[in-house]
């Protein structure tokens, strides 16, 4: 069942040109040049129930703008979108009760009060029954390991703890659709890992449809089978992460360390040399040749260790963005 359907969605922002300097500032009091920028440019995609889709793109690509239109915060300039059968920007209460948005860079909790007070407000806003409220808070706090901090003022919590509380506040009403905008931004490695584990478990257990934006490739690799790559407001790729690698990567990375110094010329015939030092080399070898080349290197050169890696997803995506520009 399709949960999210987006057709030819466009969002154009208007802004004014601001020239530097005193004279230009005085002039702007009387006349300002209006400019437009397309944050989202005619995009279309759909998401099935229970899918966890990664929305990838550099800063200003249009990821957050799309999420904000789908959550009804922003009105689009043109195009259509249906989430759970509703048009988001009509802001129907029935729709708002069925989704949640978490933004890594914004705080919905009262900073001067314990998170529990914000949860209680959300309980009333979303009309969560007492028993369900207690059970959900206990369950999520247990899962996120923050049972002991729910009564501590939010401003005294670490960023990681605060984000976990933000997640609980957003999930109290058990939304069918969850928009996660950079949920791991600024978190340390351990907190990022915990957050990823939680999102994955939650998606599997509750079958919640999740649309996730992130700058961290680890998030996407760990969580999303499907990704949508967006840049300059346009979708560059929409499909499985595995297919992306298949489509754009034709080689593997071989890292070899040697027991004796090896000349650069001895390595050239095996593949493209990316790094070369007397005792270490990094080569890009076509996928079809990897086994043969590795075997040859092992037999013909003084190998101490050899590693065969996939090309990092990050590098592939960087390539796509660079090619697009």
């Amino acid at each position: 069942m399709l949960i999210i359907e987006v057709k030819n969605l466009t969002k154009k922002y208007e802004y004014y040109k601001k020239a530097p300097g005193l004279l230009a500032s005085v002039k702007s009091l009387f006349h300002r040049e209006k400019l437009y920028t397309k944050a989202v440019d005619n995009i279309s995609f759909s998401v099935e129930e229970g899918e966890l889709v990664g929305f990838l793109g550099p800063n200003g690509a249009g990821k957050t703008t799309t999420l904000k239109m789908l959550s009804g915060i922003l009105y689009p300039t043109s195009g259509e979108a249906r989430v759970l059968g509703y048009t988001p920007w009509e802001r129907k209460k029935q729709y708002q009760k069925q989704f949640a948005i978490v933004m890594g860079q914004k705080n919905q909790l009262w900073w001067d009060l314990p998170a529990m007070d914000s949860f209680i407000l959300n309980k009333e806003i979303y009309e969560v029954p007492d028993a369900q409220f207690k059970q959900t808070v206990d369950e999520l706090a247990e899962l996120l390991e923050i049972k002991d901090i729910l009564d501590v003022q939010v401003r005294k919590l670490s960023l990681g703890q605060r984000m976990k509380c933000e997640l609980i506040a957003a999930l109290l009403h058990q939304p069918k659709v969850l928009f996660l905008d950079e949920p791991t931004i600024g978190l340390d490695v351990v907190s990022q890992q915990k957050m990823r584990e939680f999102i994955k478990t939650y998606n599997e257990q509750k079958k919640t449809t999740i649309l996730l934006t992130s700058h961290y490739m680890e998030d996407v690799e760990a969580l999303c089978k499907r990704i949508i790559i967006i840049d300059h407001g346009q979708i560059l790729y929409d499909g499985a992460l595995a297919d992306l690698m298949e489509k754009y990567v034709d080689h593997k990375v071989l890292t070899v360390t040697f027991t004796k110094a090896v000349e650069r010329g001895d390595l050239e015939k095996y593949g493209e040399i990316k790094e070369s030092a007397p005792f270490r080399a990094l080569l890009h070898i076509p996928k079809t040749e990897v086994k043969k080349s590795a075997a040859a290197i092992l037999t013909k050169l003084p190998v101490d260790d050899i590693l065969i890696d996939e090309v990092p997803v990050e590098e592939v995506i960087r390539k796509i963005f660079t090619a697009h520009r």
Partner: peptide, 10 residues
């Protein structure tokens, strides 16, 4: 910060 206010069913 109007974001969170506008997404609530109230």
């Amino acid at each position: 910060n109007m974001d969170f206010i506008l997404t609530r069913p109230v």
